[in-house]
Design a protein around this nucleic acid. Sequence first.
DNA 1: AATGAATGAGATTTCATTCAT
DNA 2: GATGAATGAAATCTCATTCAT
Lengths: 224, 224, 224, 224
Amino acid sequence: MSKTPLAAPLRQRRKEARPQELLDAALALFVEKGFSATRSDEVAERAGVSKGTLYLYYPSKEELLKAVIQQNLGQIIAQGGGIVDEFEGPSAELLSMLMHLWWDRVGDTPAGGIHKIMMSEVRNFPEIAQFYRDEIIKPASDLLARTLQRGIDRGEFRDLPIVEVTHALFAPLIFMALHKHSFGACAAEGMEIDCGGVINTHIDLMLHGLLTKQDAAPKGKRNP
Amino acid sequence: MSKTPLAAPLRQRRKEARPQELLDAALALFVEKGFSATRSDEVAERAGVSKGTLYLYYPSKEELLKAVIQQNLGQIIAQGGGIVDEFEGPSAELLSMLMHLWWDRVGDTPAGGIHKIMMSEVRNFPEIAQFYRDEIIKPASDLLARTLQRGIDRGEFRDLPIVEVTHALFAPLIFMALHKHSFGACAAEGMEIDCGGVINTHIDLMLHGLLTKQDAAPKGKRNP
Amino acid sequence: MSKTPLAAPLRQRRKEARPQELLDAALALFVEKGFSATRSDEVAERAGVSKGTLYLYYPSKEELLKAVIQQNLGQIIAQGGGIVDEFEGPSAELLSMLMHLWWDRVGDTPAGGIHKIMMSEVRNFPEIAQFYRDEIIKPASDLLARTLQRGIDRGEFRDLPIVEVTHALFAPLIFMALHKHSFGACAAEGMEIDCGGVINTHIDLMLHGLLTKQDAAPKGKRNP
Amino acid sequence: MSKTPLAAPLRQRRKEARPQELLDAALALFVEKGFSATRSDEVAERAGVSKGTLYLYYPSKEELLKAVIQQNLGQIIAQGGGIVDEFEGPSAELLSMLMHLWWDRVGDTPAGGIHKIMMSEVRNFPEIAQFYRDEIIKPASDLLARTLQRGIDRGEFRDLPIVEVTHALFAPLIFMALHKHSFGACAAEGMEIDCGGVINTHIDLMLHGLLTKQDAAPKGKRNP
DNA sequence: AATGAATGAGATTTCATTCAT
DNA sequence: GATGAATGAAATCTCATTCAT
């Protein structure tokens, strides 16, 4: 609001920082208002540039969304792959770690809102749907399936249908993320959920149900 | 054109059916394309009337959405209340029944898409958010909490935090409904999920984790 | 300017007259300013409707242009075909008649400006280029070629290369039409050409050169 | 990067060539796409410089166009004047020479496209219209009128209205140039015209009609 | 002199809503 | 009641021009 004309030059040239600033602004707004409902100007304004500048960096709103997705989810998935490859302890612990990692690094951050965006708009934007499936969903599913298989192979987990369990495991996590960015953030009160609590409960219950009888469920709770 | 005087004339006959036809058309389109992205003309056209007629019955797109919600979810909740009140068997069975009932009557029908609509647009339509919370979410949560409390009181369920479990229980169900109407229905292939399978797995695991040790997990699977 | 609110209802419903009004407005503006340089609003405004109404009748500016072309040139070509089929006198007279007809009905009317539009924008609008070639240029060329061939066959015209003569015959006519709507109409003075005079001179010279020696050149002048 | 100290350094060497390179790039693009439809960046890019540099040499797109016109047409007109002054043979030969000269040096080169540019955009750019009229059209018309008058004075040409004949003579030439850069160059096939052929035919016919009876038409064909 | 990041007015097209018939 | 023609605000994207470096 208080623009000191001398201190703040009208045309700042910050090519290096721009993409990140635009991506952050876009993520925040896409999550808050939805992709379609967010106007290009809003993204630009929040990033502190003009409409035209936005189009200098991303040729269309759709491409901007793709960049947002890649930037925020692509990396974390690669990282998860590394963890699974290197882990050597019990599978329940690995699984618990992955789920908590996801929640801390994705679900509980703005990036967690990307699922909301996708869920809302996939059917209207087939190209983005495909991009999301190939770049995010597929790799993430594979990662989880690998972990479950490991537990079954080592006799730690009951021999359950992998794909279904995969979905049952992550559904509540994603659901919580969806909630946080929709009902959980809307003006109307009384929709607050203690997401961390729900997730601990879910993980606890899941491992309980997953483990073969001889194993004791590890205590996965961390947020007391 | 050919009005049979004895039978109800076409126009008159349809007049009574109009609201339902409009509601059905609106639900289908809102779920498929989202609330904002659905044009009034489309709703009218799908219902077989003109755009003007739509506004004769519902004064705005928002009011139309409210009517869609009330019509499709209000009733089922009342019905669930009756079941809980009258049920006399083990709580695990009641819980399983409620979950399957929800899936069959809501999740697996067009009405299941309403959650998608809400999740996508609550933050842009505060008035609708409030309506949804008061008319749908609150009653449904209470219903479920009552059932869990019943199980705990009767010593069937472990003494877990009610609200969290409530959410953990329904999150995957709702998540599956969301999926069905977003990724599950979009053009891109390879996103299909066997929702029934996931849900059975989930219920199975949940009851497993919920029950005190002395009880055996009932077999909740129904779709072989 | 003077809108009597009672006499002239704001929303006139004149569905039948609209297309012609829009077409006329579009033709005038496309010719004056060029297709690209004409804004949709201008067309609408000149036709006395709002921007939205224009799009009610023509789904895009390109389709509007196609309609303008078809409406204004398609008919006249068909008519010319009829004349050639039925004519029984000397070929020089037929040729003279066709050229004068074209000038009076096309070149010297707003429709004559369509060539200007096309010449200016074909390379940027390939789809329209194709449309114009198939619907206008080809049929018109065929018509003229047929007339020349008739003159040669009957020994009235020298045996000259048909296609080249065709072009040489009409080039000045079209050129005059182009001029009328570009230099001839622009603010700068001193560019006026007596088009009718040039055309009479051209026709006179052409027939002079075309006829075999035994025939006398008919006097094609009409505008004294 | 590697500046050879002895040879003129790359940057310096090009500096002198810049205006010509920019003019060439502008001409090519203005002819191909039209003046308005050509973006400044395109001109700069084709000339191998940055957008900013273009504005260093020409203060606006309009001034650039003026420079293009002057550079490409101004000279040739002066040259034509010299020829007329010095010629001593028959007027038909002079006329034929002038027409062929124009075609070879203007019509059949990129410069021939300038007429297309002007025809398309005069009405939107009055200042340029005036410039073109004063610097190009007027001098060229005078040149031609002088030649015709010479023929009439010497009893070689029929006593026809000078101005009209002037236009009738050059209209097909200019028309062919227009064609070459519009329909003749557009993607749609089937619009090719043998321009040289048409022009030879035209000149042949014209001289035929122009000459008094005692003179035989000279054979103006050159491309066998 | 040369660059290219930044601007913002302006172009086409869409759509919720109104209202004359 | 029913219609659908009409409206105009708003959204995405473009591009001539400027100016800090």
